[in-house]
Nucleic acid binder design. Sequence first.
DNA 1: GACCAGGTCCTTG
DNA 2: CAAGGACATGGT
Length: 209
Amino acid sequence: MDERDHIESLISVLNETYGTISWWDAPFDEVAIGAILTQQTRWENVETALNRLRSAGLNTLAAIAAADPADLESCIRGTGFYRVKSARLRRLATFFLDQYGGMEEIDLIPTDLLRRSLLTVNGVGEETADSILCYGLLRETFVIDSYTRRICTCAGVSLPADRLRRIFLSALGSNTHLLRSCHGQIVEYAKEYCNKKRCQECRIRNLHE
DNA sequence: GACCAGGTCCTTG
DNA sequence: CAAGGACATGGT
């Protein structure tokens, strides 16, 4: 059994457990905003912040770029690191506005180029970039986050993020719906089973040997 | 009251 | 390059 086989087994277990799912189905702007806000932060707190942003009319990149930083910070305080995140949101917003202006422009950019371009934005790392590409723009990429690392370690595969990404991409093919579903399954599975109470009943741990 | 959460950047050795 | 720290609030 090599790493690729382990990942394929993992994918099978996830599909048996949940089937194909729809996950993080949101407008582009809100995916981009949420991708920053969820850095090192529980999703429930991000939801609260997104609701505040909607109420304040700050749930678009254009509005954020033009907003008073204090207003932005008061909306997102509950997600932690709010000063850092408000600066990151602002840079990401101006990045998209300055570079591409509209969705028509973005749609013309190849995924690998767009990814490299996103990674030049201060505050956008690999996970944030892939989240925006995968869930906001439905591009062919795969998100490697702490849940993915954890569940892969459980499955006996400890590799750097970029290697994991290649393996998942290769195992899942180019179906973007499937790529979004699989990462969603991982998050749901990890939240449900990969904690102190339930780790014993985790089916992933028994995949190898 | 520790301890952790769907990271990323910056500084040091 | 690897390791360590900073950023900060909200829930177990």
